[in-house]
Amino acid sequence: MKYSYEFYRDHLEMLRIKLPGEIELFADFIEDISIEQKADEYITKVENVLNGLYQDFEIQLNATSVLIKKDMTVLEHFYTYEEPYENEMETEEFKELMLIWKSKIPERFKKKEN
């Protein structure tokens, strides 16, 4: 993965992801993916765009929408009150980010053991 990332637990002990400023809005989209089957569905959509089956594909979740194109994926955040309202990342990197998140979903809601 080209971009740095780290996982942390919020005040409710839920696993979250921190991304660098230029793609930080993608965290809100990624964190809305709560089951592996949904991650697989979205990864398949990305692969379909990368392989030319679709010209583009849009996924809209709670507060975000991603427009997946062959080279770039653009995320629009609906409820942020300060700019930027959009981030973009290479579609291959977006796929990689979803694969990384998918691997963490099983431990997402587990409490950290002391």
Rank of each mutant, 00 (worst) to 15 (best):
D32E: 15
Y8V: 04
M1T: 13
F78G: 01
E6P: 01
Y5R: 01
Y79P: 00
W101K: 02
F26D: 11
V49H: 02
I33R: 07
T80Y: 09
G52V: 08
E93S: 10
D10R: 07
F29R: 06
S4Q: 13
E113K: 09
L99T: 09
I23P: 06
V49L: 04
K2G: 04
S65L: 15
Y54T: 02
T73M: 03
Y3N: 07
T91H: 03
T64E: 15
M98A: 05
E93A: 12
E13S: 15
I30M: 06
E83A: 15
E92T: 03
L61D: 11
I17K: 07
P20E: 05
K110V: 10
E93D: 15
V49Q: 01
K38H: 10
D40Y: 00
L67G: 02
N51S: 13
S34F: 14
E36D: 05
L97W: 00
Y5L: 06
S65T: 12
N51D: 14
P106Y: 04
L19S: 11
I43Y: 05
E83Q: 13
E47P: 02
Y5M: 03
D56W: 10
E47V: 12
F57M: 01
Y81F: 12
S103R: 14
E47G: 00
A63P: 00
K69Q: 15
I105T: 10
I30N: 06
M1Q: 08
S34G: 05
K2A: 12
K38G: 00
L53G: 00
F78I: 01
Y85T: 04
E96A: 14
L12H: 13
S103Q: 13
D40G: 02
I68N: 07
D40L: 07
P84Y: 10
E96I: 13
K104L: 06
E88P: 01
N48R: 08
T44W: 01
Q55F: 08
E6A: 06
I105L: 07
T80N: 10
R16Y: 04
T64R: 05
E86G: 02
E47L: 11
L15S: 11
V49G: 01
E82F: 07
M72R: 13
M98I: 15
I30P: 08
L61P: 04
Y5K: 05
E31T: 12
T91E: 00
E22A: 12
I33T: 09
M98T: 12
Y81N: 12
G52D: 08
R9N: 01
E41G: 00
K70D: 02
Y54Q: 02
R16F: 05
E86Y: 12
N114G: 12
